[in-house]
Nucleic acid binder design. Structure first.
Lengths: 176, 176
DNA sequence: CATCGCGTTCATTTTTATTTGAACATATTG
DNA sequence: CAATATGTTCAAATAAAAATGAACGCGATG
């Protein structure tokens, strides 16, 4: 009964890696990480790649990612570049294969701290610069307006300090 | 010497509200809030509106925003809708004027807590649901793969709990 | 040293997000 | 109640972000 055997075999395969496609588990993981990276303002493809690598027991090469995620070589390459840049992914050596093979690093905090260091911190810095510039403009205002503006500037400074105070704590919490 | 007087007058005006445009102080505030709202994934127009209102001592009506920010009525209306929705802006009554006049609320934490409640919390919730679904799939895997996958799922659960533990703290910190 | 395999880059295309503007709803005024 | 003022909504236009795919660089291989 070859028919039945092949049916069973393909059903089993489907539970794992259906027709070169994705298992339900992988799909869930990918969806999860897509929405996670979107929350951090990163492109979907980064989430797809990390999701698949996260779910994958073995290291995957670029062409495996392309094929299984239906993604162009360029997108896969750029996504891996981002993931490498903050250590969410690392390469492993595979004997007799000169392609790079990627494995997910499970420290999710790397996403968050990359986000903080690359997005939040620069924003705080430029914010500080802007507040300084605003103080320059302040002195040129007529007194009535100056008072109101001074109050507002104080609010901004307050928030900048709050942010600056929070970041180190947040980083520590995440890494812990 | 009317020429000189007018020059001085226009320079002074320029420091405040140049030709129906924006003062340097307002420009700085607007830039600051544009990058702030972009960080939270909100449209630029929301930052422009809040920035101008933040810098503005008097309450502004929709048409003033349109004119000074070079923005369509639709964008202004929708931006205000967003800002109202999380209380970053409130209306004040102006005698003998039936337009709504808007004032910035200085509690910046409202942006952050809106972001958390509208973006982060739902993501955590859907993440929890996904983890549950992944557990369903888990039992259908062959033992070898199941072990690896179980480990990964434990990581996810760990992070979900970490996130859930952090949010209340973060909210409290922000509001404080 | 010519060819091939692997990965990166970047101009172009596609997709997604935002803005515009006109139609509409609603409230006000004469 | 017609005319007007104000604000909202939403389909279409525009702008911004991301993906594609071909060209390129570089090292390995025969």
């Amino acid at each position: 009964m070859p028919a039945k055997i092949s049916t069973l075999a393909s059903r089993k395969a489907a539970a794992r890696r259906p027709a070169g496609g994705l298992s339900p588990l992988e799909v869930e993981a990918i969806d999860l990480f897509i929405s996670f990276v979107r929350l951090l303002g990163m492109p979907k493809s980064v989430g797809e790649i990390y999701g698949l690598l996260f779910a994958s027991p073995e290291a995957l090469a670029l062409d495996a990612l392309m094929e299984r995620l239906h993604m162009s070589k360029g997108a896969a390459s750029q996504g891996l570049k981002v993931l490498r840049s903050f250590g969410a992914v690392r390469t492993v050596y595979v004997a007799g294969d000169r392609r790079d093979h990627y494995l997910a690093d499970f420290e999710l905090s790397k996403f968050a701290s990359a986000f903080i260091k690359e997005e939040v911190q620069p924003h705080l810095d430029s914010g500080a610069a802007r507040i300084a510039r605003m103080e320059q403009h302040l002195v040129k205002l007529p007194k009535a307006e100056r008072e109101a503006a001074t109050l507002r500037l104080a609010k901004l400074r307050h928030w900048k300090e709050k942010g600056e105070g929070m970041l180190p704590w947040l980083l520590k919490f995440l890494v812990a």
